[in-house]
Design a protein around this nucleic acid. Structure first.
Lengths: 169, 169
DNA sequence: TCTTGACCTGTTATGATATTACATACATAG
DNA sequence: CTATGTATGTAATATCATAACAGGTCAAGA
């Protein structure tokens, strides 16, 4: 088995959007997933493994219900928790990412001004502040440019503790 | 009316989480909203104005249904589109932000490694790449630190065009 | 004045995403 | 072999979001 860096695939930023031996990356990733879960004392069961395969097969983000319908085709349970639980496991194990939203709105504190906001969301009191993120945005633009990707809109959110709640903890 | 920078409130990053004359910021923001919508030839109708007030009153992000239930208390319609439409208007006018996520999952391309991913999501072909965003993350951390906010988890997403789709456009 | 057309609001219905609660199966330590 | 913890299956329901259409308001122009 080649070392990870030998795989000329998805994990290499410049090649992420380019054609590459995707089957190779997939096999490689599955093998590493087996090793990592074993090392963590967790079990990469058939459903979980299949969900990871499904995610790896696609070069895009899948909704939980997309995953679920593919699982159902393979004879697994087709109720939402089946997919959500396997996905949660993979995220916990660092094998997948959840691209998430808050489903919420805040008033803009800089209306009428051109600005690149980042949102600081306190997980304790749920306060939200809008911080200036021009630098972070610039860094993102330049990282994207490495892959030839053109950023049109960016979402930068931080979940953590506000000063007040930090003081109380 | 004081100039915006005279308002010692929400819009000042260092003070965003600190105690301040919030009523002042609110009044100020509403006045500016009136001016901005008028200048844009748009109408800040009672529902829309009320929704902005509701968002401004809270120092946190509200779900559309939260907004809706407060609207209903004031005698406005209590069907989801009432809130969604007003919120959409405010976002279009730059008076509010929508904090959103994709509700989707991708396989991690760097499992087992400590990394700060940014997601590059092509709006045309829906491909998703995971780009290294250590710099953007560092910039975010430092912007947050200005307000005394401690970042635990960050979500950095870019919506735009991948190289392939750019070529086709 | 009347009409027209643009835009705003309300309502019904439905789609899409996510979780709770509980029942069953299964692996493995003792 | 059995008890325990963990994984999976299922039903029901909660939460978030949009499509489609009906009616109201208001201002510009005939």
């Amino acid at each position: 088995m080649p070392a990870p860096q030998d795989c000329p695939g998805c994990a290499t930023p410049d090649l992420a959007f380019a054609a590459h031996d995707h089957a190779h990356c997939t096999a490689d990733a599955l093998a590493r997933a087996e090793a990592l879960t074993a090392a963590a004392g967790a079990r990469l069961t058939p459903v979980r493994r299949r969900v990871l395969e499904i995610l790896l097969e696609e070069h895009r983000a899948l909704g939980a219900y997309d995953v679920l319908s593919r699982l159902a085709q393979d004879g697994y349970g087709n109720q939402p928790p089946v997919a959500y639980r396997a996905l949660e496991f993979l995220v916990d194990q660092g094998l997948a990412h959840r691209i998430q939203r808050l489903n919420a709105f805040t008033a803009c504190v800089h209306p009428g001004e051109d600005h690149a906001p980042a949102f600081l969301i306190c997980r304790s009191c749920h306060a939200v502040a809008e911080a200036p993120a021009a630098q972070a945005r610039a860094a993102l633009d330049s990282a994207a440019a490495q892959s030839g990707f053109l950023v049109e809109r960016a979402t930068i959110e931080a979940l953590g503790l506000c000063p007040t709640c930090r003081g109380q903890a």
